[in-house]
Design a protein around this nucleic acid. Structure first.
Length: 801
DNA sequence: TGCCCGCGGGG
DNA sequence: GTGTACGCGGGCA
């Protein structure tokens, strides 16, 4: 018998004579360990008819080994029901059991909750917390000990030694035409460790640089380093989608295995379209996922490129090198240039490591709140986090988890149109001295205080108590809190308690906790209205926005009464202008007054002051208006929201013009100049003053050329390339320009190399690439967009004469 | 109009 | 491994 304390960071399963859940973690002494815990999966069977009959049916199923059948009374959708808990001998018989029972028309519940997730919830295991284990040592894995659990108890500590995190980043031979080019270098960064391995000589050859023998040597050394360091956490940026898949491809080429699991198992890739890479016994966190899922709405930047995210969160940048030129430096064996790329490569790992360290407290807290492994939590969307938070808490409230809606049910839900938030936009335009307020957590507080949920809808006890500011026969129970609103209330209360503690002592972990609690609470409305939700309720979601519109109107009216000009308002935010900065004090006072009159925990928060900003009309779309504005803050940063994010399949010229226009308007405060700039660009385009390069559009081929049902310009070009003997694989990035001529866009697409500037279809680029993002901006500023177009006709003539 | 398809993040 | 992304916009059919 051994006794020790450890911090689990990942979970897996292993079916031997018995089914085991594996908890991978680090002991207090600093060794990696695998803790094996026996666990049996189960499912709930709804008792519609005679109990004995159902038991009889179950007992006569030969295909699976049922361990136990137990009767329970539970709550589903606010009502008590009788169910049988059916426990199986092994998780891999579950699909069989489900199939058999579904065919017999028996209703099952919680049959799709994964085995390891079920274990974590039922045993109340929070990864990254301390557990004290007593058990028996058993056959170890090649790279860590194994202990079979006798007893497991929660300790007081939290995982806090971050020296075992290893970040890495690869650089491949850059080539647009192929996704399958050699990996040239790999960098690693950990506390007190940095390394770059590559297979060409560099100068100066610093200590951290190691030259290996060819790409195969690089891959072998990569594996070696992983096993040597045996990290708790491997991290990188977009490693799910790029680095690991790329490593895998290259390894296949050399017919070697990427066997970096603690049991020397290979990487496992998520099936289907979803990219996720799992390493047995090591937690793989992709910082890109973390940013996308947990941080996106709190970031100023719309772009999630490593460079942009690092700038905002760390105040650090990537090294400025042109990555496309790595290819020629490599071919030329330019040792000094290659050294620059080594430094660049290392910097990416360092940035990623620092981002990971910065975000880890949020992961640690989210894992505790939601009850899943960090691997899952980091890859889950917010609505899934809400769902798992509810699933984790359902048993504590004797609630059963509702089944996912069927495909048809989801489809039906799409037909119901939710009334959106209140949007106030009297005058789009350019404004100065903008003050922004946010209604903090307006939806969660509404859902909690008005008890909005499917289970509390139209109860028998509160008929005729119509609180909802909506037409129709709609009410929610006012006597008994339903499960979902109770959970939101719980989150809000927990956050208040954390903030109380933080007044005494502020730590990164506590701050991450209150942020996580807020994030989750704020995602409940989206969850209620999300069609595939288990706890979906059209009525509850619709009532939430109804109350929201009611409260935000209250504030707008108050501001207007006080003589301020509300220029824009959407959902939970209010933009007003002030004469000058001296008026700020008065604004804040009024906000305080509003706050003192708001019910309960509702709160209006001061978000910031912006010297100038431009607001665009948003009336087009049917599903409700969206935020579209660009503002400049006191530190001269441009904040852009809701403009089409600039994508790869936009030409360089369209990208440049949009950026430049926003900058001239906000930084130089000179719309005239911006307008003239665009006019000049349009003239230049007509006069063929630009280069073909400026017009290139890039689109990726993602499958076999023959399997396209719809032939877009990129497919057309790719087919032409094939005909002329150039092989085009899935993954190729096709470059093309749209030229003058007859027919569809695709008929007029040309390979940039074969096109002359004079052939470029100016109209296409102006109307489809440049104007869509700019037209609205100028419209709003009172410029006549037709002038841009008229000007072009003139200059076209000038071009002729 | 509906549907197919690529984008994002990486090099 | 009890499963398998997501919401949007452009262009074709």
């Amino acid at each position: 018998m051994v006794k020790f304390s450890f911090f689990p960071f990942d979970v897996d399963l292993d079916i031997e004579d018995k089914p085991y859940v594996l908890l991978f973690g680090r002991t207090r002494e600093g060794n990696k360990i695998c803790v094996k815990h026996e666990f049996y999966p189960y499912i709930w069977v709804v008792l519609n008819g005679e109990e004995g009959e159902v038991r009889n049916t179950l007992e006569n199923i030969d295909e699976v080994d049922i361990n136990n059948i137990e009767k329970h009374t539970k709550i589903l959708a606010g009502k008590e029901i009788d169910v049988l808990k059916v426990t199986l001998q092994t998780p891999n018989q579950m699909p069989t059991l489900r199939n058999i029972l579904e065919k017999k028309g028996i209703i099952l519940l919680e049959g799709d909750i994964l085995y390891t997730r079920r274990y974590l919830i039922d045993n109340d295991i929070s990864m990254f917390r301390e557990y004290i284990v007593e058990g028996e040592e058993t056959t170890p894995f090649p790279h860590c000990r194994c202990v079979i659990v006798d007893s497991i108890k929660k300790g007081d500590e939290i995982y806090s030694d971050f020296s075992n995190i290893l970040a890495f980043d690869i650089e491949s031979y850059p080539d647009m035409k192929s996704q399958d080019t050699p990996i040239l270098m790999i960098s690693f960064a950990s506390e007190n460790y940095k390394k770059v391995i590559t297979w060409r000589d560099v100068e100066p050859r610093e200590d951290y640089i190691e030259i290996v023998d060819g790409e195969l040597g690089l891959l072998e050394r990569f594996k070696e380093i992983i096993h040597e360091r045996n990290p708790d956490i491997i991290t990188g940026y977009f490693t799910d989608g790029y680095d690991f898949p790329q490593l895998q491809k290259r390894a296949q080429k050399y017919k070697i295995k990427l066997d970096i699991g603690v049991d020397n198992s290979r990487l496992s890739f998520g099936r289907g379209r979803r990219d996720e890479v799992n390493i047995k016994g090591t937690l793989h966190l992709d910082v890109f996922n973390l940013t996308k899922n947990m941080l996106r709405q709190s970031l100023k930047t719309d772009s999630l490129k490593l460079d942009d995210v690092a700038k905002e969160l760390l105040g650090e940048k990537k090294h400025e090198v042109n990555i496309m030129e790595l290819g020629s430096a490599w071919d030329d064996r330019d040792r000094k240039k290659l050294h620059k790329y080594c430094e660049y490569n290392l910097q990416d790992s360092l940035l990623t490591l620092n981002l990971c360290l910065k975000l880890l407290p949020s992961v640690i807290e989210m894992v505790d709140i939601v009850g899943l492994s960090p691997f899952d939590v980091s890859r889950l969307s917010l609505s899934q986090m809400v769902e798992w938070f509810l699933i984790k808490n359902a048993p504590k409230h004797n609630n059963l988890v509702p089944n996912k809606p069927t495909h048809d049910e989801v489809k039906e839900r799409y037909d119901k149109i939710l009334a959106g938030a209140f949007v106030f936009e009297p005058h789009p335009g350019l404004y100065h001295h903008i003050v922004l307020f946010d209604f903090k957590s307006i939806y969660p507080t509404i859902i909690a205080s008005h008890n909005l949920s499917g289970a509390s809808l139209r109860c028998k006890c509160c008929r005729d108590k119509h609180e909802v500011p909506l037409e129709g026969d709609l009410w929610f129970c006012q006597k008994k809190k339903a499960f979902l609103p109770e959970m939101i209330e719980d989150l809000i209360e927990r956050r208040t308690r954390v903030k109380e503690i933080m007044k005494e002592k502020k730590t990164p972990l506590l701050d991450a906790r209150q942020q996580g609690l807020k994030l989750l609470a704020n995602s409940f409305y989206g969850y209620l209205a999300f069609n595939p939700s288990r706890w979906y309720s059209f009525e509850a979601a619709n009532s939430t926005t109804a109350f929201g519109r009611y409260y935000i109107r209250l504030v707008i009216n108050k501001m207007t009464e006080e003589g301020f000009k509300v220029i824009y308002s959407d959902t939970d935010s209010i933009f007003t202008t002030v004469e000058d900065e001296k008026e700020m004090g008065r604004v804040k006072k009024i906000v305080d007054e509003i706050n003192s009159n708001l019910p309960g925990i509702m709160e209006l928060e001061f978000e910031g002051h912006y010297p100038s900003g431009i607001f665009i009309s948003t009336k087009e779309g049917k599903g409700g208006a969206k935020k579209r504005y660009a503002m400049i803050d006191d530190e001269d940063h441009i904040v852009i929201k809701g403009f089409e994010s600039v994508r790869r399949n936009t030409s360089k010229i369209a990208r440049e013009v949009q950026k430049k226009v926003i900058s001239i308007i906000l930084k130089e405060n000179n719309p005239d100049k911006a307008f003239d700039y665009v006019k000049k660009i349009i003239t230049d385009i007509h006069k063929n003053k630009l280069e073909v390069d400026d017009f290139i559009i890039k689109t990726r081929i993602t499958k076999e050329l023959g399997s396209y049902e719809s032939i877009g310009p990129h497919v057309e070009i790719a087919r032409r390339m094939e005909k002329s003997g150039i092989k085009v694989e899935a993954g190729s990035l096709i470059e093309y320009v749209i030229c003058l001529g007859k027919g569809k866009v695709r008929d007029r697409a040309k390979i940039p190399h074969d096109a002359d500037v004079s052939e470029i279809d100016s109209e296409y680029y102006i109307n489809n690439q440049i104007l869509p993002s700019l037209g609205k901006i100028f419209e709003v500023l009172g410029y006549n967009v037709d002038d841009l177009v008229n000007e072009q006709k003139q200059s076209k003539l000038e071009g002729f004469f």
